[in-house]
Each structure stands twice: as structure tokens, then as C-alpha cells.
Amino acid sequence: MSAREEILDRIRAALSDQPAVPPVPRNYRQTTGLDAQALVELLVDRLVDYKANVFVEEPDGVSGRIGELLAGAGRFVIPPGLPVGWLAFDAEPARAVVDHPDHPLTVGELDAMDAVLTCSAVAVAETGTIVLDGSADQGRRAISLVPDHHICVVPVKSIVGILPEALQRLDGTRPLTLISGPSATSDIELERVEGVHGPRRLDVIIAV
């Protein structure tokens, strides 16, 4: 008998008492009911709590803010579908390197980048979580991982209160990354240290 068949048989035998299961009681919150303004405030509070740098900008302020945040940086990587206007700050467009599906950057090339600039799919205010789903304005997972500085734009319309609202908006079969603050470890005496292997600096621009 194959391992597959044997394991499935073992499980059926183990369940020979046919355990009865009640329906799942989903009496937990499905929404916070907060308005857009309150959601932004909550998201800012939670992101700051986890040591992200947060900026709230009007649409015409996004590009300028990005420019400021990239002031000291050399080359930075961008996904293929980033809104063109966001790079308007840059008089020297050669700094932005596009990671294109047809000619993706090597890991070594990514490692040489000073920063990465992406958009995001959904943000969850209550937990300060930003979700990337690999869309063209976010790119493949490696580009937002290897560079040490991640600038992430969160459109106000993508902000929800809690996780159930976020999952409704996502396609589970896309590669998803949930980001809540910069990477961190608490492995030494439970003392939190921000910034380990993922980007050590996370700048979030909330575009209202």
C-alpha cells in the first residue's frame, strides 16, 4: 500500500467514531465600522508602534515625499507597473531600475540596490498590516525583500479595519506577503530588535 493510501486509511480508522461537529460560530467582528479618517489614524498609530516611518500625503504630495525619502539613496528598484507620476520628483530617472518579468534582476543585482519602491494591495488598520499581492505595481516578492529600504505606498481606498475585510479583497492563490512593520526578532531575552533579514527600514506613505 502506498504511504498516501495507508495514511488516509489510518485517518478513517481513527475517525471510526464519526465525531459530530457543531457549525462554526462566527460571532467575531467582520468589520470595525470605522470611517476612512479613523482608519487612517488607526493605521498610522499601529505602523508607528511597530517602528515604521509613516507619512500621510495628498495625491500631489506623494512624489515629493518619495523623493525626500530617497534623498541619500543611489539606485532603487521599482516594479513594472508603478504609477509613472510617482517618479516625477526625479530629475535623473536613471536611478530607478525596473524589475521587468521579461528580464528580471538577478539576486545579486537586487542586493546592490539601495531601496525598493512599491504600491500595496490592502492595508489592515487594526494590526498595522500591509499586504502585497504581486500585482504589477508591487512586483514579485524578491524585489521588496532583498533591498534594505522599502518605501511602500498605501492608497487610502485600500485601507480596511480588520483581517476579515482584507481577505475578502484578496486572491489567495497569488503570492501574498503580509508586512507589519520592519523585520524584527525577539529571540534574545524577548527583547525586540527591529531590522534583521528583511528591509531594516520601512517607510509607508499613505496617499489620501
Binding site: 489592515v124 498595522g128 516578492r141 503570492p175 503580509l178 508586512i179
Partner: peptide
Amino acid sequence: RMNPYTSLWTGVTEGD
């Protein structure tokens, strides 16, 4: 409230 990173993947995604 949430851990810094959660990764979700489904099988193989071309180019990612």
C-alpha cells in the same frame, strides 16, 4: 497584534 511577516504561496507562480 500581527507578526512582521506572513508569506502565503500556492504551488508555483511563474516568475515569482
